[in-house]
Simulated assay, not measured.
Amino acid sequence: MTVSFGSILQAVYNYSRLQSANDRLTVQLSTGKRITSPKDDPYLYRRIHALEVESARYETYLNMIDEGTAVVSHVHDAVGLQLETLENMRDIANKVSAGGLSPSERSALNEQYEELTEQLTRIAEGTGFGGKTYLDGTYSAAGSGFRIATGPGGEYYELTLPNTTAGDDGLDLADTSVSSTGNANAAVGRLEDAIETLTGLRERLGTGEFILESRAGLMESKQRELDLLVEKYQAVDPLRLAAELDRNKTLQQYTLAAIGASLDSRQRLVDYLFPR
């Protein structure tokens, strides 16, 4: 039987195609992904890449929300410390206001009061991160408050943070004292106002934490939807791939055997026609 060169070339071509298929199957099995390069499926590759880029955007927003939430939580804790300080100051002022203290006792209490007043400012000026200070009035105006990006399309959450130092532009307590009953009486009223201000601020901060957590949940949900789509497009059946790889290798072995037999047959024909 004469074997044509065309049939030999076709067998070599088939072997090459099987090898390419095996290389692709091996990559899919090792990576767990059906699409690993544009040549696998140009359209699907672009689609998966677009989904992964969009998912990464949501991851970025999640990171920014997490950072913003950490800042809000930090400020919330600081305001809580300031409220405790104010309540201690009010207790001292009420004690002096009630009268019946000796001058030395009033002096000692006034010294404690002044230390607490300084502590208020220290807490405010020390509440910051990354070179930003949050309770010194920098973010007190609407429209220029502390902003946190929360999603695509320019979505953000803004929180205004008043100046909570003891100064005139803050809680207005720097010039108060409890050196006398009259001064203590005056201080109590201003302390009550300051406590009301910080109580409201702490409530807004708590609301802010809830809003940010809700938006983080929304971003996580959208990111998960995208990731599930990518998983769907990339899903592989390891058992099927392994079986297909084994089948291809078997076919390759038969193809190699056929090529060898064909070449041997042609060589015998040449030797018969042109004996040496």
Score class of each variant (00 low, 15 high):
residue 135 L to W: 05
residue 137 G to C: 08
residue 121 T to M: 00
residue 121 T to D: 01
residue 103 P to W: 02
residue 88 N to W: 06
residue 81 L to Y: 08
residue 153 G to L: 05
residue 165 T to E: 01
residue 134 Y to M: 04
residue 134 Y to F: 15
residue 92 I to R: 03
residue 108 A to P: 02
residue 154 G to W: 10
residue 89 M to K: 13
residue 145 G to Q: 05
residue 97 S to T: 09
residue 126 G to E: 01
residue 133 T to F: 08
residue 126 G to D: 06
residue 120 L to R: 00
residue 137 G to I: 08
residue 127 T to S: 08
residue 101 L to A: 11
residue 144 S to A: 15
residue 109 L to A: 08
residue 123 I to P: 10
residue 162 P to K: 04
residue 134 Y to K: 09
residue 82 Q to E: 15
residue 164 T to D: 03
residue 79 V to F: 00
residue 87 E to V: 06
residue 133 T to W: 08
residue 102 S to P: 04
residue 148 I to W: 02
residue 93 A to F: 03
residue 119 Q to I: 01
residue 161 L to A: 04
residue 91 D to A: 15
residue 84 E to R: 11
residue 134 Y to I: 05
residue 154 G to R: 10
residue 142 A to P: 09
residue 135 L to S: 07
residue 91 D to I: 11
residue 137 G to S: 10
residue 116 L to V: 01
residue 104 S to P: 03
residue 103 P to Q: 07
residue 97 S to H: 13
residue 88 N to D: 15
residue 117 T to D: 03
residue 135 L to M: 04
residue 135 L to H: 05
residue 108 A to E: 02
residue 91 D to E: 15
residue 81 L to G: 10
residue 79 V to P: 06
residue 108 A to V: 05
residue 97 S to Q: 14
residue 86 L to I: 10
residue 146 F to H: 03
residue 103 P to I: 01
residue 155 E to V: 13
residue 122 R to Y: 03
residue 164 T to N: 07
residue 83 L to F: 04
residue 88 N to P: 11
